[in-house]
Amino acid sequence: MTELLSAALTGITLGLAAGMAPGPLMTLAITQTVRHGLREGLLVAAAPLVTDIPIVLLLFFVLRELPGQVLGVLGMVGAFYALFLAYETARAESLGDAASASAPASLRRGALANFLSPHPYLFWITVGVPYVLAAHQKSVLAPWGFIVGFYLLLVGSKAAVAALAGRYRNLLTGRVYPYLMRGLALALVIFAILLFREGLNLLTGAER
C-alpha cells in the first residue's frame, strides 16, 4: 500500500508539472475553447489519453530506446504542424471564424500536436518507463498508481485551464478576440521554433 501511494504521488507531481507546462497543446486547448466552446478545449486536453497509449506500448514492447533521429524528425514535423495551427489561429477575426465552416476536430488536432511532439517520447524513455519498471519490482499495483496519478493531473490541469478560458470566454470576444488570437498564434510560433530547435538538436546529436 505504501508503494502504491508513493507511486501515485509521484505520478500526480509529474503530471501536474507536465500539464501546466506551456506548449502547443496547452495553447491549442485555450484556442479551441475560446473559438468553439469548453467542450472542444476539453477534447484537446484529453488528447494525451489517445496518443500516449501507442507511444507507451511502443516503448515498452518494441523500442525502449527510440533512436534520437526519430525523435528529432518528430520534433521538426511537429514544429511545422504548430506553425500551421498558428496560421489558422491568426486568421480568425471573430468567434468561430475560419474553422466555423467545418467541424472543429479538436481531438484530432490535439492528438496530432501531442503525437508529433518529442516530449511524450522523451518523458517515457527517460522517466516513465524506468520508473514503472522499478515500481513493478516492488508492487504489482504501484505502476498503475503512477500512471493513473500522472494522467489524472496531466489531463486535469489542462482541462482546468480550458475551463478557466471558457468561464471568461465572453470577456475575450468582441474587439479583444482578434488580438487574443494573434497572441496565441505568436505563442504557437514560439513553440514551433523551440520544437524545431529541439528536434534539430536531437537529430544532429544522434548523428555524432
Rank of each mutant, 00 (worst) to 15 (best):
Y81N: 03
T89V: 14
V73G: 04
F80I: 03
A92S: 15
V73M: 11
L71T: 10
A86S: 14
S100R: 13
G68R: 11
V70K: 00
P54V: 08
A86E: 08
R108K: 07
L74K: 13
G96I: 08
G78H: 10
R109G: 00
Y87S: 06
L85E: 13
S102H: 07
S100F: 12
E88M: 11
F80M: 14
V77L: 15
G75K: 11
T51E: 02
A82F: 05
G110Q: 10
A101Y: 10
G78R: 08
F84V: 10
V77H: 02
R108Q: 05
L74V: 07
L59C: 09
L74F: 14
D52W: 05
L66F: 12
L57F: 15
L112R: 00
E88C: 04
G96A: 05
L57I: 14
G110I: 06
S94F: 10
L59Y: 07
L63W: 15
V62Y: 05
D97K: 12
S106W: 12
D52Q: 04
S94T: 09
F60P: 02
I53Y: 06
G68P: 06
L58R: 01
A82L: 10
S106G: 14
D52P: 10
Y87I: 06
Q69P: 01
G96M: 08
V56Y: 06
D97M: 04
L112W: 01
S102L: 10
I55D: 01
A86M: 06
Y87V: 09
G96W: 07
T89G: 05
L63D: 03
Y81L: 15
G72R: 03
V56L: 15
R64V: 01
F84I: 12
A111V: 12
P54T: 09
Q69C: 01
M76L: 15
L83N: 03
